[in-house]
Design a protein around this nucleic acid. Structure first.
Lengths: 212, 212
DNA sequence: GCTTGTGAAGACCTTCACAGCA
DNA sequence: TGCTGTGAAGGTCTTCACAAGC
């Protein structure tokens, strides 16, 4: 295996691999084949093997992959064998729900601070986190050594907030606003929009209905 | 244009087209070129034109696309020029947040009922919706003519709940559990997992760091 | 002149199929 | 024998480039 650029689709699948491997490990399974992984991931065995081959040779012919070992390797490759510091911007209904959601910390994503423009929210504590003035974000982000930003503001503020996060040196942004912000090269954005997800399914529902 | 199977990637982009077109319409813009749409969508003009060409010829040479007309057409194609009936399963912290989230109804997705297995939650009203016993779901789903299910239950219950929804005749599922359920052909699932989204970015953060 | 719609070319991703090894 | 790792083949999606039309 020579180092090549990894296709982005592969990077998007890696977390799913980790997710099922962790489940297998939790269940006490020691070894898994590309065939079985394929079934669990709704993918072909060839795709599993090809994807993994971008990063190394983790399997043994005739046996398969050792679950705990492959899991450890993938966690390292993805950089999730460490903790990441996160800030949230926008402490409305959605932002508050994110702060109280317990799913981030166990995976190593620690939301250390939250920011909002509304002064009436400053000083409040929501799920262990203090809400601060957005004006403080740059100094706080640098003090805390923040890597990742979560954006939960209205569409109209999204681009401005993203620009601000980028200015703070943040290079990875999880965006809950229904808007695709523009960012400079080297900044990564993932959008979460349940409405968009629903709308891409209604196309199929409608098409199935139209079928005679 | 002859009727071809539409690539799934195109279907996934359609909602984004609608989103920016709606913004342009709200701003009072009458006409838009593939060039400008491309900028707003972070896509090439050629891709915009090719995508749209799967569905018809909506533009005028030398001018571009009439915003309100294209918007209307796309909404019809996607089946979002109508209302859809939705049920939610799992009224925990996440499920409650979904019920009180105001973003679905304005887009025509009406959450009509919610279900949970925990009897202590039955009868509660959260955001206009009554929480009912999961045992009632089939009769209620049929009575209400439900099209779409939202799953907000723990991983351990996800597959069982999805099976149940499919049994209710539901063919589109928005899944918030960190697990990819298995479904029969003709059933559409979209997964929302912010942790997976974050993890696919840490790969890049780590890789950028490793660069010397 | 400007911009669409679209075959053809090119890039990218997936699947095949088999050599190689446990 | 069973399963991986991987070049090569195949398929899909994106981009090019230009004829056609406003």
């Amino acid at each position: 295996m020579t180092t090549t650029t990894i296709p982005e689709v592969v990077v998007l699948r890696l977390p799913l691999y980790v997710r099922v491997l962790a489940a297998l490990e939790g269940r006490g399974q020691g070894v898994v084949s590309s065939q079985e992984l394929g079934t669990l991931l709704h993918a072909t065995p060839a795709q599993i093997r090809k994807d993994l081959s971008y990063f190394g040779r983790f399997g043994k012919q005739g046996r398969g992959y050792q679950v705990s070992n492959l899991l450890k390797e993938l966690r390292h490759i993805m950089g999730i064998d460490r903790e990441w510091s996160v800030v949230l911007v926008g402490v409305g209904q959605l932002g508050s729900a994110i702060l109280t959601y317990g799913g981030f910390a166990p995976q190593g994503f620690n939301i250390l601070a939250a920011f909002d423009a509304d002064p009436s929210k400053h000083g409040a504590a929501i799920g262990n986190v203090l809400v601060q003035d957005i004006a403080q974000i740059k100094s706080e982000a640098q003090r805390l050594g923040v890597h990742i930003g979560i954006v939960a503001v209205p569409v109209s503020h999204c681009q401005r907030v993203v620009d601000l996060l980028v200015d703070c040196g943040i290079r990875a942004i999880l965006n809950y606003a229904p808007y695709q912000p523009t960012t400079p090269p080297g900044v990564w954005v993932r959008d979460i929009d349940p409405v968009v997800a629903l709308q891409s399914m209604t196309y199929h529902l409608k098409t199935a209905e139209d079928q005679w």
